[in-house]
Amino acid sequence: MLVCCKLHISESRNKAALESIEAASKIMHGVRMINKFEDETYNRVGYTLVFQLPPNSFSDVCPLKDAAFAMVKSALEAIDLNTHSGTHPRLGVVDHICFHPLTDTSLEQTAKLARSLAADIGTKLGVPTFLFGAAHDKGRTLDSIRRELGYFRPNADGHTWFGGPNSQYLPLRPDEGPSHVDPSKGVVVIGSTRWVGYYNVPIFTTNISAVRKIATLISERGGGLPSVQAVALAHGEGAFEIACNLLEPDKAGGDQVQIEVERLAQEEGMVIGKGYFTDLSLDKIINTFLESRDSSIDH
């Protein structure tokens, strides 16, 4: 019974902050960091943690949840959102956390961990926290929360996001924590879903309107690929990316996204690069964890 926790933190340039966050992840026995993905332009880092639950475990007491809480606490202490900027949107210092069931773990088990972590962050750290997916009683989606909180609208010149939510008072009531925002911390969004893939495709152009059009046409919301969410983000000088969430990779995976972006970009006369995943595959994550666990047992 394996469970995965992905944490996306709005920082990649402050190495001292990242070191303290990563040190916090190591305090709980059995929790392993399987992957780390940093993006300097987005000023964002993603961590993938995995833990093996005891058989028939239905408790919200879990070292993985405790490790995630320690990382959140460390991030909030080390990072000031007021001084943060990047080309990836964000709602908080800890922008997004999601628990995924692996192997024989159930979605309800991971949802319980997400709800428990949200309660701890809201009450102990005093940060407004929102639930999505199986962790929310009505199955609210991550993108619906983001839209209501203005996630997809740059709040600085050009294509840059600076700081967090513009208003101290939230238009959406948090599930845990206060209803007002500390601008240095922002909010946290926590959920539980089936496996989600993240796939980005570079497009070398300065025509943001054309790139946004492609992002819309790729998305299921715009009549494109099923279970794909896409957004156009600046990524370096004269370049953008179509950043995709693959909500059901078996329905539409990275290969299909790549082919469709290439087709649409060609119609616009634009050059694109080879896309990439920002995390390991589901099978690779499971195998990497099992190999690291078995190696530690052997020693």
Rank of each mutant, 00 (worst) to 15 (best):
V127C: 08
V127G: 03
P128M: 11
F130V: 05
L131E: 00
F132K: 00
A134G: 02
A135Y: 10
A135K: 04
A135H: 06
D137C: 09
D137H: 15
D137M: 10
G139D: 04
R140F: 12
D143P: 10
S144T: 12
S144E: 04
I145P: 09
I145G: 06
I145F: 09
R146D: 01
L149M: 12
L149R: 15
G150Y: 05
G150N: 03
F152N: 09
R153K: 13
R153M: 04
R153E: 06
A156G: 12
A156R: 11
A156E: 13
D157A: 15
G158Q: 08
G158C: 06
G158H: 05
H159G: 12
T160P: 10
F162S: 15
F162P: 05
F162D: 08
G163N: 09
G163R: 07
N166L: 14
N166M: 14
S167F: 15
S167K: 15
Q168T: 14
Q168P: 08
Q168L: 13
L170T: 07
P171N: 04
P174C: 01
P174G: 04
E176W: 06
G177L: 02
P178S: 04
S179Y: 05
V181P: 04
D182C: 08
P183I: 01
P183M: 02
S184N: 11
K185A: 12
G186R: 12
V187L: 02
V188H: 06
V189W: 02
S192H: 04
R194G: 07
R194P: 04
W195P: 05
W195M: 08
V196L: 10
G197V: 01
Y198S: 03
Y198N: 11
N200T: 06
V201I: 13
P202K: 00
P202N: 00
I203N: 02
I203L: 03
T205E: 06
S209T: 14
A210S: 15
V211F: 10
V211Y: 08
R212A: 00
R212Y: 02
R212D: 00
K213W: 15
I214Q: 08
I214C: 03
I214M: 11
T216C: 14
I218F: 14
I218N: 07
S219F: 15
E220H: 07
R221Q: 15
G222N: 05
G224F: 13
P226V: 05
S227V: 10
A230N: 02
V231L: 05
A232E: 07
A232C: 06
L233I: 05
L233C: 03
A234G: 12
G236L: 11
